[in-house]
Nucleic acid binder design. Sequence first.
RNA 1: UGUCUGGUGGUGUAAUGGUAGCACAAGGCCCUUUGGAGGCUUUGGUCAAGGUUCGAAUCCUUGCCGGACAGCCA
Length: 564
Amino acid sequence: MSTEGSTENNPSQDFIREIVHGDLASGKHNEIVTRFPPEPNGYLHIGHAKSICLNFGVAEETKGRCHLRFDDTNPAREDTEYVDAIKQDVEWLGFTWHEQPFYASDYFDRLYGYAQELIRQGKAYVCDLSAEAFMQTRGTPTRAGENSPHRDRGVEENLILFESMRRGEFDDGSKTLRAKIDMASPNIHLRDPALYRIRKVTHHRTGDAWAIYPMYDFAHCLSDAIEGITHSLCTLEFEVHRPLYDWILEQLDLPRPLPRQIEFARLNLGYTVMSKRKLLQLVQDGDVDGWDDPRMPTLSGLRRRGVTPQAIRHFCQRIGLTKFNALTDIALLEHSIREDLNRCALRVMGVLRPLKVVIENLPEDYVEMLEAINHPEKPEEGSRQLVFSREIYIETDDFMEDPPKKFFRLQPGGEVRLRYAYILKCEEVIKDADGNIVELRASIDPESKRGGATSARKVKGTIHWVSASHAVDAEVRLYDRLFTQEEPDAQKEGKDYRSLLNPDSMVKLEGCKLEASLGEASDQTRYQFERLGYFCADQQSNQDGKPVFHRTISLRDSWAKAKG
RNA sequence: UGUCUGGUGGUGUAAUGGUAGCACAAGGCCCUUUGGAGGCUUUGGUCAAGGUUCGAAUCCUUGCCGGACAGCCA
């Protein structure tokens, strides 16, 4: 099995790495500088992880550097809460950025100067059109737009007006600074795009210093140039913006070679949504518990759920990088999660839906310590002692009164191996007045423990258990996919993606019985509850001394598949 | 009737004019005191039609199908 650091498909490179290595080989660049440029208006999700792994990965591999840059040019939607969360998530994934984080807002002065320069060159002008008029004169993809009546304002007038905009002398939205390119361009983004808009909003870093803020298209390319970014990697929807990206940089006196924008396909994952807008809506509507709800595809949600950064990085490596707009099978992520958890999780036993079993051929006060190993493939993880006694709990699902063929577990009169312990035989089924099974009476084969005379006896199944009087009570939360449809965004009109929320995406189980060692579980430790799945303790909701565990993911279950 | 861009097994990706390979998923077998893990194995693919070539997933032509773009969002 391949492990850390190893690049699967080692010799092959994606198209971006080919370009990067080509630019190094040709001498175009001596050092590669990339950037990860989130807007601090939401939490990072696994789609961002793809970009993070790409940008930081390319920098690492080429001994270059990658800047974390906050693209904070729209103060109305941005907040330091997001800045902090983003930093935490990037670090959690295991990447370190060059020096301090960068901020587009640190360049506001210089960007303003570049805008003035464009005005002086006659390539930008102040436009008085309202947003509505702006829209109406822009044309459509198939119809050219019309020139703004203010397009030919003189340089001096433009400079003065722009300065007044900056000082807040005009109302929000009353004027914009626009590039003067071509209103008939087949590319709408070249039809005199807005460069600055008036927004009298307090910025989370610059306060009230500015009444105008630069647009993405203006700020991003220039921020890249200012930082000496060599390759500006972004998602496909910016493909159409690239001519504008290049146009702005080419007009100005900037160090060459200029940064090059290269687009790749964003990650689409089945059974979830990946837009910050929709994720925010789920949070605001209370459909989930917050950005870090374990059902969310956010990095904070995945973290809280118990997914490891290593699993995410491996996943990002596996999904590849192309310009094809793909829908990635959620099974691929699940595989990466299981693979890493199998490697690192400590094995323990816990019973989620307890069924009491009384072992009648054991005395009332019987107590025996049994050794259990912590990890079958890692002897260095050692072992622990389990308490075995007369009354135990087994999983309700592990007993069937009238089982189908190929059911390897316990049934009336049948035998099963108790993990790390004895062979157990079901002698009697106790039911309540309504006919519900409430308890089993059983016996053990006292010689069947490992090393015992009958230990080699063949029994079909092995089940997990905990000692009734020594078990820890816990709440366990099971998670499933957030949506019932693989493509919640791609529904026929009228069907809102929120109507496709999976009502069973979280199931809370109370009264679960866990082996004693889990009473002091650290939230950093990943566990495998044997035969059930991977779990981790919750750091937040550990109320009234009762631990809460999340099921990160179930084990592969070929029995579930077999019975359909 | 616009511009940009893409189409390789069920899914995601490799092959850069020379044996269509890998991973996931699915099926089978072995092993197993986790129906886990692991090992072995099978099924299954170049959007279509022409052309160039000894040879095409790759180059050319035409067609078909998909995605992005009409925020003073990023």
